[in-house]
């Protein structure tokens, strides 16, 4: 029997809770503290917890590095693409009102912010996991006596 049994059980229980919490923080950027950046870090933290417990190889099977690359690109493209779309529609860069004009209700603002924040979420979450993969894959080059 493995002596990390307790850590394993509790971490497995916590991973879905952390992911849902991160996305809650993302989608409630309007009403409370939150937004794409924080949410991305929290979602990445769930993946990092998985990698800590089950090893980085298992984590690379679950969240492949190719997905990470695609996620980074899609995030940046969503972010910049929102700006380009507003620009093409005749407004300034990131002029969200052009997306859906409504004099009473800032619907265009909401739509634009949702798109931009989704881009930030994708980019931050995947970049965080990518940094973890990059740093975690390094073998320690300091010998034990130097600590």
């Amino acid at each position: 029997m493995n002596s990390h049994l307790i850590l394993r059980t509790v971490s497995k229980f916590l991973i879905p809770l952390i992911v849902v919490y991160g996305l809650y923080v993302h989608f409630h950027g309007d009403f409370g503290p939150g937004g794409g950046f924080q949410a991305g870090v929290i979602v990445a933290a769930a993946v990092v917890l998985y990698a800590l417990i089950f090893g980085i190889d298992a984590c690379k099977v679950a969240v492949p590095p190719s997905w990470i690359r695609i996620g980074m690109t899609v995030g940046v493209m969503l972010f910049a693409g929102t700006g380009v779309v507003t620009w093409l529609l005749g407004g300034a860069f990131f002029d969200y009102d052009v997306l859906k004009y409504d004099p009473d209700h800032p619907a265009g603002q909401h739509l634009g912010i949702i798109c931009v924040e989704l881009g930030v979420l994708f980019t931050v979450a995947t970049v965080m996991v990518a940094i973890f993969y990059a740093f975690g894959s390094r073998t320690p080059d300091i010998s034990d006596e130097d600590w």
């Binding site: 990390h4 990698a51 800590l52 089950f54 298992a58 975690g136």
Partner: peptide
């Protein structure tokens, strides 16, 4: 984990 295994990569338990 870092100070016990000198790294964050290795598996602590298997799936």
């Amino acid at each position: 984990k870092f100070f016990r295994y000198r790294g964050l990569t290795g598996p602590m338990t298997s799936l």
